[in-house]
């Protein structure tokens, strides 16, 4: 049975995703906080209990 994919492409694609995740993380407040930098607001529990939808949208009744 012939393989339906290229191993190199799979590793390349996963490598690119990992690099993007790392680039995002290294520039984040959480990484700064973990590196000992103070006065940084991290967002581990990102929830807004006042929001009206899971995406954080406000309630229609509160909009002008």
């Amino acid at each position: 049975m012939q393989r339906a994919y290229s191993r190199t492409r799979i590793l390349l694609a996963l490598g690119v995703i990992l690099v993007l995740i790392m680039a995002d993380h290294l520039n984040s407040p959480t990484f700064a906080f973990n590196s000992g930098q103070g006065n940084v607001q991290t967002a581990l529990m990102q929830r807004d209990e006042s929001a009206c939808a899971p995406c954080g949208a406000p309630c229609p009744s509160t909009r002008d």
Binding site: I21, D24, H25, S28, P29, T30, F31, T42, A43, L44, Q46, G56
Partner: peptide, 8 residues
Amino acid sequence: ALKDSVLT
């Protein structure tokens, strides 16, 4: 969510 790491 936009400001912080995707890992959080």
